[in-house]
Design a protein around this nucleic acid. Structure first.
Lengths: 133, 133
DNA sequence: CTGCATCCTGGGCGATACTG
DNA sequence: CAGTATCGCCCAGGATGCAG
């Protein structure tokens, strides 16, 4: 699979390298779908959190969505759910070792986001006010 | 911003590192929103493509969505649009240098997706899944 | 060929109330 | 505190048709 250069053009019938890569990325984004999962992973990357803590620290998420996302992520082996105490109930969530592999990627995403914000700001300041659709 | 260890727990008032990172990732995912942009970038990472080529190679995308995504990505300086010929009209799309920075990340995403697919298949087959955490 | 307008549907997601 | 149930909005995105 890796005898293909990253930036080599893929013309004609050298089709499969492209589509395989696209499919693989699709698999990942399928698991990371929705508005919240990446943020949750990013947060849990800083350490174990309880349900209510995530609710507070992930700005804007509702309880329903948090439950749903967490359950989904558990099924996909991204997070581990641990009942800490029964009365009152407390549940802790942490990343699986396997999901930890995503952290460097997500970190890169964060860095790019920071850079992008600057680039766009420059564009807006620099350009002679063009009306954007 | 980087005096924070990647895996250091962020408790109590060490709140801002978490939320800043989350916000930055959010910025990126905001730009990469929707079902198609990452796939398009991944494809264009293999080389310049024409509109109709992208339409064929990105499995499942409709013409409307492709136009929309491409326009959006152009505004965000992710792709460059070049009119190749007028009669009949032909348009080539390529990644900006700046968007090329995303390729390694997307490549990592692809690798993780491949791995994940295997893990999930193992899990479904009931094979002893690796012990997490 | 490239790309826009229109119509339409599914489901993602928010708000709120409720259970254990 | 953790999680579910219900209701409903809204918009991403599919299908189709038209225009330059």
């Amino acid at each position: 699979m890796e005898n293909q250069q990253d930036n080599a053009p893929c013309v004609g019938h050298d089709f499969s390298a492209c589509s395989k890569r696209i499919a693989a990325v699709h698999d990942t984004m399928d698991v990371l779908n929705g508005k919240w999962k990446i943020a949750i992973i990013s947060l849990l990357g800083f350490g174990t959190r309880r349900y209510s803590e995530i609710l507070k620290e992930v700005e804007g998420i509702s309880g329903k969505m948090l439950s749903r996302e967490l359950k989904d992520m558990e099924l996909n082996l991204l997070v581990k759910r641990t009942v800490v105490s029964e009365q009152p109930i407390a549940v802790a969530y942490s990343l699986t070792d396997y999901c930890v592999d995503l952290l460097p990627i997500i970190h890169s995403l964060a860095e790019w986001g920071t850079k992008h914000r600057q680039v766009i700001v420059q564009q807006i300041k620099g350009e002679p006010v063009l009306e954007m659709g």
